[in-house]
Design a protein around this nucleic acid. Sequence first.
DNA 1: GATTGTAATTGACTAGCGTCAATTATCTAA
DNA 2: TTAGATAATTGACGCTAGTCAATTACAATC
Lengths: 235, 235
Amino acid sequence: MQHSCLYCRSRELSEWCVLTDSELKTLDKGSGMREYSPGEIVFYQGDLSNGIYCIESGLVGLRMSDTDGNETLLYLLNGGNTMGYRAFLTGQEYGVNAEVFKPSRICHINSSTVTSLVHSNPNVGLRFLLRASNELDQAEKKIIQNANWSVRARFAHLLMVFVNKQQKKPIEGQVEITLPIPKHEIASMIGTTPETLSRTIKSMEKDGVARFSQRTVQIRFLKRLTQEFDPGLSI
Amino acid sequence: MQHSCLYCRSRELSEWCVLTDSELKTLDKGSGMREYSPGEIVFYQGDLSNGIYCIESGLVGLRMSDTDGNETLLYLLNGGNTMGYRAFLTGQEYGVNAEVFKPSRICHINSSTVTSLVHSNPNVGLRFLLRASNELDQAEKKIIQNANWSVRARFAHLLMVFVNKQQKKPIEGQVEITLPIPKHEIASMIGTTPETLSRTIKSMEKDGVARFSQRTVQIRFLKRLTQEFDPGLSI
DNA sequence: GATTGTAATTGACTAGCGTCAATTATCTAA
DNA sequence: TTAGATAATTGACGCTAGTCAATTACAATC
């Protein structure tokens, strides 16, 4: 149950990588770790923020739901990712639910500590701005993709994201990946239904693009997968 | 052709509202104004940034295109809005084209000036973070809406955005608005085609939700328009 | 006014994908 | 191991909205 920001392996990946040694100690003192199990909710859409969450390890999904009850899984976060920074820095309520998908070690840094760090080191704020900017890029691309790509193309693209995220590197265009979340969550991520995703998978198997068994996906030709959403690559 | 940040009516709406008097003078010295005509491009997607643009008056659209040639109009900006702050602050290329829709007065603030302002006043950076955060909220909502709402609902929602943006206030649930951009651009904004939008307009007229003639839209019952995308309001 | 280019509309067609309902598979916990 | 819940699959069906092609309206320019 012990935790220490000083020796956290994920810290270098996070916005805290710009902290000085003394600031690091402040961070360490102002934070506490908790272990979460799959299914647990770290914070709810609509809640007010009282600090920032920092994932040491595990997998967390951010889900947004609208007034009609429609839900969409917007982001998957893992070790080194901070959560809730927007709500904190703008003083607004959380815009999403944070749901734990895999056993996770998640730290919470209290308000005053974050505030003092942001003020003592201007780079922290800029880091978060960088983060927001990147997420915005991602979100805008997603808008274009959802509008112009078929379900199959969007799914192929998400598979490529998973391929690039994992450490195991493809050999001669072949890889095997494990889907980090259940298929109906994947359907939610790409803005479709489980039924349509199921049929899409079937058709991709038929075409020999990939083999699916449970959560395992064997990709034979990465290039063919890429062509699903970027036909220009065939040239 | 003269221009002055000190007396700019739009400044209070922009991120520069937090500047001190002396910083204002720095801003004024480091910026220059140019008048643009409809159709002109202020900057191109892919270009490198060399400062920040600031709209004094007029109307500018930010359009993103992907590798397949699909284009989407993502934002409409007018007086008081800054453009290109993300590319500048993150050092990346512009992610969008900035296209002038109505005659506009647009100021350009050069790199060194922006840099010095960001460093001299930490609130400037936070303002831009706030801006990015709001845009991100908007973008995420758009993702959910595009996935779950019909073209008709999305169009009704955009009409409501126009209603709320204009100064003329509704009287007893009735308003008349003028579409700020041609219909095919509106189609692009809500992720559909001009043909489908045309049919949607026809069906809304048939149902008596609004009357359309050229760019003028007469809305009889704002409540009915709202119900198009938020049926819960009928309760 | 005539000409040209762009915008908007309309019709016909249909593919993609969502919905509903039923069945099967898989997982978890007692 | 069994039971119950959740996840995944499959089939049948219908509708939304995209595509293609043609026509009409409108705007700008000479």
